[in-house]
Design a protein around this nucleic acid. Structure first.
Lengths: 257, 257
DNA sequence: TAAATAGTGTCTCTGAGACACTATAAG
DNA sequence: CTTATAGTGTCTCAGAGACACTATTTA
């Protein structure tokens, strides 16, 4: 190790250039659902959205950027991201994960900034109040497609792209779909949510695989009412559909089966 | 975003406390093989080892720590880790991945240090010269078990643990096993390498699954000589074993099959 | 009865899992 | 002939994949 300092006594004078900041940036995803057909009951149209804020100051004044902020000495980067997330969305206890660090020289004109990127998955129900309040303000949801076409501040386009790949990967291999769903949901809702994130996701016989195959039985289970009867929902359909919930079970995948 | 600076003009005086350094720490793994039975040909004993260095200066003087060093403004964290890796092991072009950031306040007595942790997988053949030279020096390989029992500097025990979980996970879900193997290897070697990292790995009919099942056919393939004959090896066995190589194919896993 | 979603019946063929068995070569 | 590794034969049953079909409710 190439320590800049030899011992405790002569420590205080740091001879080396040090970073000018260690920000955390958060890619906040949500899936919005909008009615497709007011006349008949039908599945909603779902879109993957990302929350952006419009910058007020130099640099990149006026441009849209990821929410984030500088971390402080008294907190971990994770805590600082949690704090930012709460400030921007007013929600806590949501799924947030660290996924990469961005340190390309010159990525921030303010100086040597090493940015730590998180993604957060927020259920649209939690953002409802927030969205109404901020509709015309400098905080807005954009579809991922829109966001990637905009000229985002810093290297935030790259960060959004990387975050998208991350959640697409996780959507296929973990149960994070639950973050976008109510606690009780139908198979169609689950399928739709997966497809909203992983655009080319297509599984024929999805219902069967997720429900009746032994190997995956642990992932979800039917919801029953107090009398032990199966609980159904007809929110999106004429014919009532079985409700399911996620179990606390993460299947272990392996390429060597 | 809570920018500390309002515009370019008054930027230079940063009013905020900034980090004292952004080090990169690298958990360098290798698998060593030692003869078990000199009399008869047999599979070697394999052990997962991690490279540590003994610190010469405050803090944690004399204790063992992960190799690493401070990153500079002119390079990405990844580049700085690559540089360190080359300095410690003399190897380049090995598999190295970033996996987490460590920023708990007080983790480094020298100040506010945000550490970026990488793991590297190095084939033992590449370390051979190095190991001979440094055998009695302050750079050594320890088995992971040993390393986790030692009193490592900083939060390096946690970092090693996390790195171990990472490579165990990746060993099951990706083809990183190839980093520990020669380009041509037998099924037993592959199986042994996986077991060395993932201690409870056990697959009956492993040979069949990895070779004759259609769904996984892309991962490895038999090696043939110039005449198209199957290439065998009797390095570890009386009866010659088929040699395989990895294809450039990463299977896509999914919990929804 | 048409529309929209929910769900089943049935067939085929791959492949996981178990376990006993054979194959090869060296000491 | 024993030992150590390599590899096959064979059976069973789960389950992936395809696709047509039925079920339920409401405008």
């Amino acid at each position: 190790m190439n320590d800049p300092i030899e011992n405790e006594v002569n420590y205080t004078a740091n001879k080396y250039r040090t970073p000018d900041g260690a920000p955390a940036d958060i890619v906040i995803f949500t899936i919005t659902s909008t009615e497709r057909n007011a006349a008949k009951k039908s599945l909603p149209h779902r879109e993957l959205q990302v929350l952006l804020i419009q910058r007020k100051h130099w640099p990149y004044e006026g441009q849209w950027a990821l929410p984030g902020g500088f971390s402080q000495e008294s907190e971990t980067i994770y805590e600082s991201a949690k704090r930012e997330l709460a400030e921007e969305t007013g929600v806590a206890n949501v799924h947030m994960e660290y996924f990469n660090v961005y340190s390309t020289p010159g990525r921030d004109p303010r100086g040597w900034m090493i940015s730590h990127a998180f993604f957060a998955l927020v259920n649209e129900s939690l953002l409802l109040n927030r969205r109404a309040a901020d509709d015309a303000a400098d905080v807005r949801l954009f579809t991922v497609e829109e966001a990637l076409k905009m000229d985002l501040a810093f290297d935030h386009e790259l960060i959004v792209k990387d975050a998208l790949h991350q959640i697409q990967q996780k959507m296929r291999t973990t149960t994070i779909a639950k973050e976008f769903l109510p606690s009780e949901f139908t198979i169609s809702e689950l399928y739709q949510v997966i497809q909203t994130v992983v655009l080319d996701f297509e599984e024929s016989n999805f219902v069967r695989k997720i429900t009746s195959t032994q190997s995956r039985k642990g992932i979800i289970e039917e919801v029953r009412d107090l009398h032990g009867n199966l609980k159904m929902s007809n929110r999106y359909s004429q014919r009532a559909a079985q409700l399911y919930r996620f179990n606390d079970y993460e299947p272990q995948l392996s390429i060597y089966s």
